[in-house]
Nucleic acid binder design. Sequence first.
RNA 1: CGGAGAGUAGCGCAGCGGCAGCGCGCACGGUUUGGGACCGUGAGGUCGCCGGUUCAAAUCCGGCCUCUCCGACCA
Length: 573
Amino acid sequence: MRASRLFLPTLRQAPTEATLVSHQLLLRAGFIRTLTAGIYSYLPLGYRVLQKISQIVREEMNAMGAQEMLMPFVQPAELWRETGRYEAYGDTLAKFKDRRGQELCLGPTHEEVITDIVRQHVRSYRDLPLILYQIQTKFRDEPRPRGGLLRGREFLMKDAYSFDKDETGLGQSYQAMYQAYRRAFKRCGLDVLAAEAESGEIGGSESAEFMVLCDSGEDAVALCNRCGYVANLEKAERRAPVQNQSVGTLRSLERVSTPDQRTVEEVTKFLGVRPDQLVKTLVYLADGKPIAALIRGDTELNEQKLRRVLSVQSLQMADAETIERLTGAPVGFTGPVGLESIKIIADYDLLSMSDFVTGANERDAHYINVNIGRDVRVERFEDLRWALSGDSCPRCDGQLELKPSIEIGHVFNLGTKYSQAMHALFTDGHGVERPIIMGCYGIGISRILATIAEVSHDEKGLIWPISVAPYDCWIVNLATSKDDAIGQVAEYLYNSLQESGLEVVLDDRLESAGVKFKDADLIGVPIQIVIGRRLAETGSVEVRLRAGQGRWEVPLAEIAVWVQKKREELMRR
RNA sequence: CGGAGAGUAGCGCAGCGGCAGCGCGCACGGUUUGGGACCGUGAGGUCGCCGGUUCAAAUCCGGCCUCUCCGACCA
């Protein structure tokens, strides 16, 4: 492709709306354009990258036996009502009606559609296992799209679904997919961590999120500094502490007046203590039964953890009325002292706390110098709060560190949630009808594009790994005219590189040298060839790698072979 | 949805009751060509939209729309 004909609207200054580097650079380099919030067009360069990423993912999916198909973007509400998600998905599901009044929605994911297809045609265990996938646009009307392509409302995703007759089969499908993901991300040039994750509503099974460490990431992973433990923030566990018995002299329990002081901030400020000297008492209804959870004042309770610890289906915070009825005091003054009627579970942190502050179960009053055992009867100590940097690793004696990251893929077991709701049944070898066991596997294709831009750039612009780069090679032709000697060499070089199978751009624009260099660096094609006055001086052209490692003077006669070899080398990294 | 900010030329911005501006980009002519060159000429506007106040509104007032940031949310 000639740069003079390429649709390449580069920008010297990024639009103010873009705050993330990836967003700014993709806009500036002419890869994408904004249509409206969270919705983008891919211009020729951006689309080439998208296709490269798609192709890598496609090859890895096909290699592990998954079959590609394409499902509709528009789906009937009817199907979503079968699983109850038409309402459960909330406003994130974009709904509309057609001219006849039929209710439709834009697909945010495709479990319902795929399950509908499979239930119609899969009847026997002989038809299983089956893995189907598609690469398709999704739409989720997020309450607040942000970060450019990193979190759009419309995005390109690879979603795969596995169908198995038993848990063993599911485990095999899951493992095969897990390995395929590792290979695909590596080929895209990304360093990826597989983080343990919550497995959704149907518990007991595995789930992993594939994360790229990145400061601008919206998610976070907990990493152990000793062993290989990696978990997403929601899942990250802590090791049970050794109980701290050697507590010194305890001060005596005292009730203090705290008029109108309800929040941790208000109470600690009023009493002149730190938030970590206060214990929050949170009252929940677990499958309808009240329970009190105790956590340190400066930490947050993780409801998933509490739910797992209690082994309950539903968990919700008790409303103000219930709290008042159970504790005898309004919200803000709840405490564990004398709370005999409710089961009390405490976070591990409480084991090492003494003489702390709690509510007094009485309006406008708190206790100080509260102590476990003497004043509070705790049934169990558990890991209840969100992990923090410095927490102990659950697998070894190392420490966890929280790091921001971007989720680019997720593999998890669906179990029989959809097959049961939608009657996707098969007959097993004993003639018994069973729901098909499903798995679901997603990769954010457009998010990978943005992630690579986010983690692979410098002050000059983008730096593409050659496996996903829009082109292999960018020729910076400094000739002023096509007709002079240098211009003719550039034409010759352009043709011979193309003939050897390389994807190459010749910058033949009548721009100054500075503009051509700046654009080449901004766009970030990995191999740059400069044809200028040195050609006349030495008979060779200059080759550079955009990533910065190395510069070579290569004789004209050897250049095509040389670039081929360099491309192979870069591809292997 | 709560809080904050913004909307003026393709991009970045100034102007804040009285002629619609600047830098970059764009077009044309000329001089340039190893890191966003220079000179000259020119084109380009529903000042987000609707209404109000005023002799006069980009500017003041009201409503709406859109975008961004922080938070809530994110199978």
